[in-house]
Simulated scan of single mutants.
Amino acid sequence: MQQVLITAGASGIGRAMAEGFAASGADVWIVDADADALASCPSEWRRDCIDVTDEAAIAALFTRLANEWGGLDVLCANAGIAGPTALIEEQPLSGFRRCVSVNLDGAFLFTRAAAPLMKRAGKGAILYTSSTAGLYGYPNRAPYAAAKWAVNGLMKTAAMELGPFGIRANAICPGAVEGPRMEGVLQREAAAKGTTRDAIYRGYASGTSMRTFIQAEEIANMALFLASDAARHVSGQIIAVDGHTENPDPKV
């Protein structure tokens, strides 16, 4: 039975991952900053309300995790925020730093805490939720794109450092995922570009060869595969689940 820790696991992609791993028979432990969302999750899931940039809280979490579980098989470093939507010259430094902190610092802190547990076991899988924004430039989303490119670099380095200990690291790059978070992005981009939400939606869909958005469950399915023995020699890879993004700048 796998023991799986998922950040931002109470909603969206993280919730879909948690449901997928739980359905496969895994023990699931989720963390999230949203207490209300955590309260709505199945009672059998372990849970903690944590800001993923809180170093002390993460240290305390892993002390308890080590005591209760004894180890960790899979870390899904999934937490992230969209950050401000604006042209570079209009981006506030505070918003830029917060976006990078949640997306990158959170992934780093959880990787740093998980690595010793996985090293002792001589196995493990670390999965990072990146983005197609980490593959291309992303107009009006400089903080988010910068953070996701950095997450991919962190993953590549983790794969190199931890591979000799039987630990694999990979990054999943979702495209536009249906759900409340993407809805917020659509609304903000529409306001920034002076157009409608529906026009932005169509622009995103038409920017993929499959002309479609993605479902959170599809990201979860990739996570389950990458965490399984079927992917035992898949490491250091950036894998897009995005309907094949052709144009990262949706035209409206």
Rank of each mutant, 00 (worst) to 15 (best):
A158D: 01
N170Q: 03
A171S: 14
I167H: 09
E189Y: 03
L162K: 09
G184A: 05
L162R: 10
R168S: 13
A227W: 04
A171E: 08
I167A: 05
M160L: 15
I214Q: 08
S209G: 00
A192Q: 12
K148V: 11
I167F: 15
A220L: 03
D229L: 03
A150D: 08
Y201F: 07
P139D: 14
A159T: 10
W149L: 04
F225H: 09
D198G: 02
G163H: 07
Y201R: 12
R181I: 02
C173K: 11
M155G: 05
P164A: 10
V177Y: 07
G166L: 10
T157R: 12
R168Q: 11
A159C: 12
G153A: 04
R188S: 13
V151N: 06
E217K: 14
R211C: 02
L154K: 03
M155F: 05
E218Y: 14
L226E: 04
R197K: 15
P174T: 14
T196N: 06
A231E: 00
N140M: 02
A142V: 15
M182G: 05
L226A: 00
Y144G: 15
A192L: 07
A145K: 14
G194I: 02
Y144V: 13
G175Q: 09
A223D: 01
N170F: 00
G163Q: 13
